[in-house]
Design a protein around this nucleic acid. Structure first.
Length: 152
DNA sequence: GCCAACGTTGGC
DNA sequence: GCCAACGTTGGC
């Protein structure tokens, strides 16, 4: 099993949106970056545990935990001309973008601020800090445990 | 295949 | 709104 950090803007789709879905399950879609896509398609598995990161907002940080409930499948939005995520170069035969399904596991009482995470030596090597724009980032076991310990 | 221009992300 | 980082596009 692997651990991940998925980023989303809470205005667009935050942890409250996931919590409000039927069964607290939803689709993680709209990923339009090849490196993030490759992680989703090739490595993310059912049962993987994921940190829900809020970005581009007043309080950037980790808002909770989710779990992958369905492995990668073509993101339907790429075929929908009315969608913001429409990709005219994608076809049903050769999809370009993928989504996974997730369910909410836990919402932290307080968002773990990215500024606090940066101060934590055990998190200094996080790929997320090195590669700020990547929206699907793998975590080491140590990083996963460390972030969880900051939630209490 | 190179590289300049341009677009996007994300913290502040 | 600004800016740094960096991914994408398109001309050559």
């Amino acid at each position: 099993m692997n651990h991940w950090l998925f980023k989303s803007e809470p205005d667009v789709y935050g942890i409250d949106h996931l919590a409000a879905e039927p069964g607290q399950q939803g689709r993680w879609d709209g990923i339009r970056n090849y490196q993030a896509r490759n992680h989703l398609k090739d490595t993310v598995e059912v049962g993987d545990q994921v940190l829900f990161y809020h970005s581009s907002c007043p309080q950037p940080g980790v808002a909770g935990v989710m779990e992958v409930t369905k492995a990668a499948y073509p993101d339907p939005a790429q075929f929908d001309p009315g969608s913001d995520y429409y990709d005219p170069k994608a076809t049903q035969e050769k999809p370009r973008w993928y989504a996974v399904d997730v369910k909410l596991v836990r919402r932290f009482p307080k968002v773990i601020a990215s500024t606090l995470m940066k101060q934590q030596p055990l998190l200094s090597g996080m790929q997320m800090f090195k590669q700020g724009r990547l929206s699907v980032v793998p975590l080491t076991e140590t990083e996963w445990q460390t972030v969880l310990s900051m939630a209490d």
